[in-house]
Write a protein that binds this DNA or RNA. Sequence first.
DNA 1: TCATTTTGTGTAACCCGTTACAGATAGGAT
DNA 2: ATCCTATCTGTAACGGGTTACACAAAATGA
Lengths: 328, 328
Amino acid sequence: MVTIRDVAKEAQVSVATVSRVLNKRGYVHEHTRVRVEGAIHKLSYRPNNVARTLFKKQSKMIGFLVPDITNPYFAQLVRAVEQVTNEAEFTTFLCSSEEDLQKELRHLEKMQENHVDGVIVISNTLEWEHLQSLDIPIVALDRTFHEEVPTVRIDNYEESLRAIQHLLDEGCTRIAHIQGPAHIANSTLRFQAYTDLMQAKGLPVLSTKGEYDLKVSEQAVSRLLEDHPDTEAIYAGNDVMAVGALKAAQRMGKRVPEDLLIMGFDGIDWTEMVTPEISTMAQPIEEMGRQAAKLLLQQIEEGVTAPAKTVLHASLLTRQSTRGKVNR
Amino acid sequence: MVTIRDVAKEAQVSVATVSRVLNKRGYVHEHTRVRVEGAIHKLSYRPNNVARTLFKKQSKMIGFLVPDITNPYFAQLVRAVEQVTNEAEFTTFLCSSEEDLQKELRHLEKMQENHVDGVIVISNTLEWEHLQSLDIPIVALDRTFHEEVPTVRIDNYEESLRAIQHLLDEGCTRIAHIQGPAHIANSTLRFQAYTDLMQAKGLPVLSTKGEYDLKVSEQAVSRLLEDHPDTEAIYAGNDVMAVGALKAAQRMGKRVPEDLLIMGFDGIDWTEMVTPEISTMAQPIEEMGRQAAKLLLQQIEEGVTAPAKTVLHASLLTRQSTRGKVNR
DNA sequence: TCATTTTGTGTAACCCGTTACAGATAGGAT
DNA sequence: ATCCTATCTGTAACGGGTTACACAAAATGA
């Protein structure tokens, strides 16, 4: 492996001079600079970031912990985060935890061992105490951990209200809800908004568990529609379950939206892949990823510690799956 | 930050002894070991992998370069790779290149600078010369780079033949093909198999470009079905385009499979999300990821250099979208 | 009992890039 | 001529683990 000392010898200067050329810092004579650059090129030298990190205690790497990389919601976030960090010449150290606390902890350890400069965390299981000891800048995405941790998220309760309001506006009264996992705070908030609003309007509350899973949701909705064939609309706690609901409806011969309206939440691409396309309360996914990355880089580079709480707005995407009820 | 010297002082031993305890290497007296472990625990010491890497020239990290992390095919590969590498106490350094050669090269540079022990590469743009200079173990996934690079893939030509044969078996003769991008070798192989087989059978060849993209495919198939309403089956070069084809068919009021059969390639989950579910020639995605990871780890840990070419078999998944033609 | 092997521990060099500090030269001001 | 500053370059220590080597103590064997 070519080291800075090899370059120094080739260019007949000291390692300090080579380092100055590399970092464009301090005084270097034009003649010397050219000679050093020539040597660098000739030996195709690449500085060793490991050695650099060891000394500078700055790795130019950030960690990003996501629950499941095969979930398109997270995949899109990853892309947005990478976009920002790459522009800032940082590298992203991605870890998928499979929703497993042990893996999350192991990954955080690895990140610490590899000296990442900061971490973006999406987790439903991690607690503040787990992160506290890391002692590096942190940004929470999608959910709040602690007062002190800058956070980027949407208001799941409010946006959920808006989603249901859309179904009410379309003239539905018998609206069923497919719940996500109870241990996920956002899922519970969306559910809570549903029960609160329905009760406030004096409308029937009917819900079933879909576990944020397509197949589970499909099963659950099948049973629900059998038991309550008069259901007019289904509000799913996320898009994946909405797709499951659509499959169930189609298998039972229900037409969407003529016989049943379906509404999702999140705004992932899947909602556009199926026929009919599914209406959804779309989170500004790309924007959330970018904001989180910017917030983290700010903390790293400027030491900004203001625990910013960025709350972004979702946007209602009305598509085929919720059109037509009023026209009946 | 707690260093090995802090631990040594706390346990009243030398740094060498602490290192021996950490690595379970060499002789350490039971008493001493306990005392050192106590100190490690008391100070909650974590070894600095950066320093370790610098000396050992072994980072216990591997790089994984994928074209697009939001594509479920790659996301599933990532998960499989991580599974194997994590078990071996390695960390995966994931980079998504967005199909951009410049980004790929930048990412490879970053990997090298951070001293990854090996790289798994999926790329349609990189050339052997770009990888050669890395001088670390490499495994190619999904496509062959060079004789010397161990590769894990399927036989795209043969499996494509089998996919089309399935449509023929179902009694179709007017089979159209949706092509992927011309610069992607696998895409061209799948297309080639189509033309070869159709011509050999004396059947009409009809194809259009879908660019591996849902929307583009949807448009292309709409036009194709307008121009050739007697088309009996569509064989898409990948599943994403198959979904696009289904959307187009449904929008035009064609029933699948009664009026039109649809067949995909890859075996991603999307094919199960839509109604009807789409038949596909499924790649053993998880298996490919695992094999690639194992191959790489073998090279790293045992210095095995046999340029293994692992060719796995795809499996035909027949589902609703290709059932019924013969019964008409 | 003495020689030999095994066990246990410490010192110091090493990995490679960075930078504080010192020394040298050139140019300008007084 | 003297002093000062700006420019240019090199030496050596540093960061945090690892390990070759040396040495001491304990165990084993004859």
